[in-house]
């Protein structure tokens, strides 16, 4: 069974009197361990698909199953819990909580899970070392560079060991060198830990690193290409 399966998915937003079709009759399967990107120009529906997969948004019609769970059968509380344990999120920027330190931000999901402070600390220290941000634990987000902030966000996303990490334009606010480093890092995590990654991006750099490029245009599937990465 695929990790993520979308059946005949559509999403329609009301906008004034009009209706905006963001996603139209999309069928998609993503297996565990994939490193895939949803590509397409802005407005093509990538973010909507990502939000729906992440249980942040509900489809107008169609069916979503992630890690064996059908979202339609779940209550809001169960969905929040599912997000907490099975899905990791990485966003563009500003997605750290400014009043918390880097370590506290990374620990946040573990704290929500009720992991004991000591265990949390240990896990995050190891992760920080692994992600190359050791020593920055006590800094506030404002004192970190964009790349460092995204690494903290990655630490927060992978700390609970989710089934899939959803990354919405993770490189949008980074220079290409930092972006390259970050992608390498995520690729390594994907290989070493087998974590599934699903990106949404129109950054050629991200697309170049992906094993699978799912192109969307006007809410429809345009292309689904697998490519070899060096």
């Amino acid at each position: 069974m695929p990790l993520i399966s979308l059946n005949n998915l559509s999403k329609i937003y009301p906008l004034g009197n009009q209706q905006i079709v963001a996603v139209q009759e999309l069928d998609l399967r993503i297996e565990a361990g994939e490193f895939a990107v949803l590509a397409g120009p802005s407005g093509s529906g990538k973010t909507t698909v990502l939000n729906i997969v992440g249980a942040l948004d509900t489809p107008s019609t169609g069916r979503v199953r992630v890690d064996g769970c059908d979202y339609r059968e779940m209550k809001p509380k169960a969905l929040a819990d599912f997000r907490l344990r099975r899905i990791g999120f990485i966003f563009q920027s500003y997605n750290l909580i400014p009043v918390l330190t880097a370590a506290e931000n990374a620990e946040f999901t573990l704290m929500l899970q009720g992991v004991a402070p000591k265990a949390r600390r240990a896990k995050i220290s190891a992760l920080f070392a692994e992600l190359g941000i050791a020593g920055l634990e006590e800094r506030r987000p404002n004192d970190l560079s964009g790349g460092q902030q995204q690494r903290v966000a990655i630490a927060r996303a992978i700390a609970p060991e989710p089934a899939v990490i959803l990354a919405d334009e993770p490189t949008a606010n980074l220079d290409s060198h930092t972006a390259e480093d970050l992608l390498q890092l995520m690729r390594r995590l994907n290989r070493e830990k087998g974590t599934t990654f699903l990106f949404s991006s129109h950054d050629p750099l991200v697309i170049a690193h992906a094993e699978r490029v799912i192109s969307l245009r006007d809410g429809r599937l345009e292309n689904d290409i697998r490519q070899e990465i060096g």
Partner: peptide
Amino acid sequence: IREFGVILAVGASPAR
């Protein structure tokens, strides 16, 4: 609001 969105996204419940 945006920050609360992130917190909800990473799995906090509205009650929290």
